[in-house]
Amino acid sequence: MSLEILSFGFMQRALISGIAIAILCSVVGLFLVLRRYSLFGDAIAHSSFGGIALGLMAGVYPLWTAYGVSLVSALIITRIKDRFNVSGDASVAVLLSSGIAVGLVIIGISGGFTVDIFSFLFGSILLVGVNDTIMILGLTGIILIVILVLYRQFLYSTFNEEQAKVSGISVEKINYLLIFMAGLTVVTSIQLVGVLLISALFVIPNVTAIMYGKGFKQTTMLSMAFSIFSVVVGIFVSYIFDITPAGTIVLLSTGIFVCTIGIKSLGILKT
């Protein structure tokens, strides 16, 4: 049964792009979670919804407009936070709701909800095409290389901004770069779990991995492992039982989180 599934092109593409997105979201998400920016992914995803609606209305490939809108909003949110002393969670809330609002208005103008909109809201990993898969792999590769090259800078400025500055790191540039990469990651991941469930990929595997009390590299590895497991098993299970992949993936991820809490409260895991 399982081997037969693997021979389908759409399944191969789903698995390959799913695994790439799982890795990407774990790595980028860990930095966001540790900076208390957990909902940032959500905010960008919601604002990209406005971009998607714009693309659908204008007849442009919706993910392109989503990339544009989400990157601009990511930069705006950071600017507002830095310049006007608005707290991180408040600026996230502003962006989150206004993104959806823009989307709704545009959808209203262009004549109501369509199937396309739903596939962006809830993901459509089984429908990912060859070009999308290549794009996802390329982007994953580039972002991972950037993080590897600037690993110390990213880690240090996440750990303590002031000390990172004193050690000569351009913390502001690193912050913008991270936000920029998070924006790209979010829009790329929309194909897997959709606008509404992005946070799950960014946050749940990471908070689970952090609980195991290891160092940074091991935590990253654990998070990736949890994420890949949820995505791969989620895609199979959803195909076999004909349920939504996005929901299944997120629930599996939540399951691992709940098990970890269970193990911890039984005292098997320290820290």
Binding site: L30, L34, R36, R152, L155, Y156, F159, N160, E162, Q163, A164, S167, G168, A209, I210, M211, G213, K214, G215, F216, K217, Q218, T219, T271
Partner: peptide, 21 residues
């Protein structure tokens, strides 16, 4: 007082290595 998240997933070696140029 070095301020950091109490459950930041970094070991002593990780922290010392952050300083390493």
């Amino acid at each position: 007082k070095p301020i950091f998240e109490k459950n930041f997933p970094a070991t002593v070696n990780d922290v010392v290595n952050m300083g390493l140029r």
